[in-house]
Nucleic acid binder design. Structure first.
Lengths: 226, 226
DNA sequence: TTGCATCTTGACCATTTGGTCAAATCGTTC
DNA sequence: GAACGATTTGACCAAATGGTCAAGATGCAA
């Protein structure tokens, strides 16, 4: 279990990355995301990832020195995009708009990148062996910052008093749930976020609960139109 | 991947289960819960489970015919208790009381049996290979029934109009999140549900959002007292 | 105590799997 | 097209692991 930041720099001595390198890395990372999110770290096999990426196991190991390195690379690859939405929460904006937009983005992420959500969930559930340091530094810094934004909204009387961190957890939990537990959701409703109507429905419901939960007069936009 | 319901009936030909059988089964299931929830199905090893249970691998395999059988038994063992709280949702009760009680129970479950939550989450995230049939039958029946209860509350004007199934998902997501992502929560807040104050705080926050989200006049009981 | 079923274990096996390596092929530059 | 580095692969290895088996230990009833 080495650090997350180390990348394989073996194959290219010169500064540039050949086109074939870039393509294969990308193929590998995509295949790795699929496999790791589906089977977990231990359940995934290097051979299957290689097959999925359309190359031999040996060749894959030419690009990444170990299974763990592939895993870390896949994780790092999704992490930034996965945590990006929170950064857009604007202190200047209206809480209703900002939070609704944040929820919408998070649900869109769950719909578009369910595998990323599951990979992340898997990692954290196993104790975050690879990304714990990042959670404790980068993510904590970001969350602290946004908690302050929420605090300010509370102080300004714009939303009901609540512990900001629990609000963030609630939004994370509800939105990611639809990706992580999509099988269960499909078993119970017959649909999941890949269904457009269900996506809108989910967006409506989650947004309604959270915003009303915060005492925000929530216009429930375009509800009449649909 | 055989069915979930089959249990190892090898060791005892006679109807009764010896005391030692009962004890060892229990030890094994407890150890299995710990290992499977920590490492996932593939990551867990029979030998470690056996060691944790204080016996040899061979002996463990005397009680359960295979790793998968242990997994299924552990899963079946927690499933009932895990889904029990929803059953207590009483159509006769007041929504505020009933939902608050349900949320409290679910959070208590997350605090008391976080491993069960993670085991369940893991199973579902991997596509519920073992319990999908149960989700589609037993759980669906239960959820449908409780959705009707919520519908009735809506029809009676007791809570805001919302799709009941999303309300249930929201409660599941928020409450289980504190068990499944406890490492992340600890990284961000320094605490988790094992901390009594944090437990109360979580209960308050989640209940407040959900109940207010449903437009329920929520007394916020004993908030002044604490 | 004896006898038998239950329980326990170490030795062993077959398979899976992460990773190595030398050889072969491909691509590019001169 | 020669040379050389980049890319690709099959053969192979060592460790881990799920599971079997025969033999031994233990508990219990008569």
């Amino acid at each position: 279990m080495t650090g997350l930041n180390e990348q394989s720099r073996e194959p290219f001595k010169t500064g540039g990355i050949s086109r074939i390198q870039e393509k294969n890395r990308s193929l590998i990372l995509e295949a790795a995301l699929g496999e790791f999110s589906k089977k977990g770290f231990s359940g995934a096999t290097v051979e299957r990832i290689a097959a999925e990426a359309g190359m031999s196991k040996s060749n894959l190991l030419y690009y990444f020195p170990s299974k763990e390195a592939i895993y870390n690379a896949a994780l790092a690859h999704i992490l930034e995009v996965w945590l990006a939405p929170l950064k857009t929460l604007d202190p200047q904006g209206e809480p209703a708009d900002e939070l609704a937009a944040y929820i919408r983005q998070k649900i869109a992420m769950s719909a578009t990148y369910p595998e990323a959500s599951r990979l992340f969930a898997n990692e954290v559930m196993q104790g975050a062996p690879q990304i714990l340091p990042i959670l404790e530094t980068n993510l904590k810094r970001l969350v602290d910052e946004k908690c302050q934004v929420i605090e300010d909204w509370i102080a300004a009387g714009k939303i009901r008093r609540i512990d900001p961190v629990h609000l963030i957890f609630t939004i994370w939990a509800t939105t990611q749930h639809y990706a992580d537990f999509s099988v269960q959701i499909k078993a119970l409703t017959g649909k999941d976020l890949s269904d457009e109507d269900f996506l809108r429905e989910t967006e409506q419901s989650v947004t309604a609960i959270v915003l009303n939960g915060l005492g925000i007069t929530w216009p429930q936009a375009e509800q009449g139109a649909e």
